[in-house]
Design a protein around this nucleic acid. Structure first.
Length: 434
RNA sequence: GUGACUGUAGCUCAGUUGGUUAGAGCGCUGGACUGUGACUCCGGAGGUCGCGGGUUCGAGCCCCGUCAGUCACCCCA
């Protein structure tokens, strides 16, 4: 029979890797909470039209990367390829803006039909935030600070790269200026950039083709032609970032692939990720809510690529292993196993968060200790023939290798209490686990 | 979507110009140590060589296709 494998560009997640995901998600939620952002959950699929209108009809995402299908009712649906448009849709559908500015965060999968590569998948996971209703630079700085704090909380020294791509007033002017700059050299540009010249001249700025470089370097920057309000906004963003001590660089080559961005755009980049250098990206999208049929409402947000972020942590060796914790019950023989089951149950009920594990196999004691050791258990409770005969338990500290015999009390609940009392009296592990 | 590289045991990898029973380390398992997780020593299990065709007396090695991963481009988180 032919083996069935996970679809291309997807991955299964299991321990210990899934534990790292949980840690990242927990941290992200905690920091979002600290900033006053509440979780929003939206469907994994939406009307195709939402993304066509929200992301932009001529973007690569919409043109060639969406998982679009018809359901049995003939509706055209699409697995979400990004998360801002769905959040806006939900916010509008439930009239949440009627109550004033709103802040949301989200965590979960998104889908793009791309050619997989390290740090690039067909199902990827993002954590992100969206802040609606504040037009001023404070909101831009808030979301940048949130992203910064999340990255920094994992011990990474991070700098934001920021830029402004203007608004409806000045971006068309910039576009014209770029076309005027590049058009005379059209034949000298890379093929990709020649087509970008017609479709999206801004993209030429981040071209990696060597033949484009001299022209890119001489190109006018968006900052040169920003209209007065946009220039003031960008200056204010910079001074507020300075004020709260968020390190950043201005990078005039940052543009965004999604049509809805206006004014501030930013990225956090890592050199650990090869070509997929962007771990976190976002910006302001003042026109999107109105474009999706809502009242004119400013917005700003970012998305962080969770796979990419975890890749960085792994490469940097930043993934911490916690101290030993939990109790492994080692039962030797059928009778001891039968005896151990109610004891384990009592321990689990009384342990308040401690992991209580037991191996139901016939593995010999050495093997069970080895497994408990690898699982980073702190202690082991041994029940074998001797203990069954004497009505005792052996409690062993796996960190110090010391052990003592304790009486097994009349009931399992009492025995559990005495074992847990012994456990809590253990001295904290001093050595740092590798 | 374009170009390139890789795919051998659970994991990391060897495998000579195509040649007979495909190896190592780690892990697993049994024993030396009648119930104690380091170390050492001895034994054992585990592989349709990604999959499908082809060439050949003979293919893990060569050819074609396919699937998957990786690298760059494209794009993006």
């Amino acid at each position: 029979m032919e083996k069935i494998a996970a679809p291309r560009g997807t991955a299964d997640l299991y321990p210990p890797e899934s534990g790292r995901w949980q840690a990242l998600e927990a941290r992200a939620r905690e920091i979002a909470h600290r900033f006053g952002y509440g979780e929003i959950r939206t469907p994994m699929f939406e009307s195709t039209d939402l993304f066509v209108r929200g992301v932009g009809e001529t973007t690569d995402i919409v043109e060639k990367e969406m998982y679009t299908f018809a359901d049995k009712g003939g509706r055209s649906l699409t697995l979400r390829p990004e998360w801002t448009a769905p959040v806006v849709r939900a916010v509008l559908e439930h009239h949440l803006l009627a109550q004033g500015p709103q802040r949301f965060f989200y965590v979960g999968p998104m889908f793009r039909y791309e050619r997989p590569q390290a740090g690039r998948f067909r199902q990827a996971h993002q954590f992100g935030v969206e802040c609606f209703g504040f037009a001023g630079p404070e909101a831009d700085v808030e979301v940048i600070a949130l992203a910064h704090d999340l990255l920094a909380s994992f011990g990474l020294g991070v700098r934001a790269s920021i830029n402004s791509i203007g608004d409806d007033v000045c971006r068309p002017r910039y576009r014209e200026a770029l076309v005027a700059h590049f058009a005379p050299h059209r034949d000298e540009l890379s093929l990709d950039s020649q087509s970008r010249l017609d479709r999206n001249p801004l993209r030429i700025l981040d071209s990696k083709a060597p033949q484009d470089r001299p022209f890119v370097e001489g190109a006018p920057t968006m900052l040169d032609v920003l209209c007065e309000p946009c220039a003031a906004h960008f200056a204010a963003v910079r001074s507020l970032l300075d004020a709260i001590g968020i390190p950043y660089d201005v990078d005039t080559r940052i543009v965004r692939g999604l049509d809805y961005y206006t004014r501030t755009v930013f990225e956090f980049i890592s050199t650990d990720l090869g070509a997929q250098a962007t771990v976190c990206a976002g910006g302001r999208y003042d026109g999107l809510v109105a474009a999706l049929g809502g009242p004119p409402t400013p917005g700003v947000g970012f998305a962080l690529g969770m796979e990419r972020f975890l890749m960085i942590l792994e490469k940097r060796g930043e993934i911490a292993v916690g101290p030993r914790a939990g109790i492994a019950v080692v039962a030797l023989g059928d009778a001891a196993r039968a005896r151990a089951v109610p004891l384990v149950a009592a321990l689990r009920r009384a342990s308040e968060g401690l992991a209580i594990t037991i191996d139901y196999g016939d593995a010999k004691i050495a093997s069970q200790f080895k497994k408990a050791d690898r699982a980073h258990a702190r202690a082991a409770i041994i029940i074998g023939d001797d203990e069954m005969r004497d009505g005792t338990l052996v409690a062993r500290d796996l960190a110090t290798r010391g052990q003592e015999t304790v009486p097994a009390l009349a009931t399992d609940a009492l025995a559990a209490q005495s074992v847990l009392a012994w456990y809590r009296a253990l001295r904290p592990e001093t050595e740092v686990a590798a």
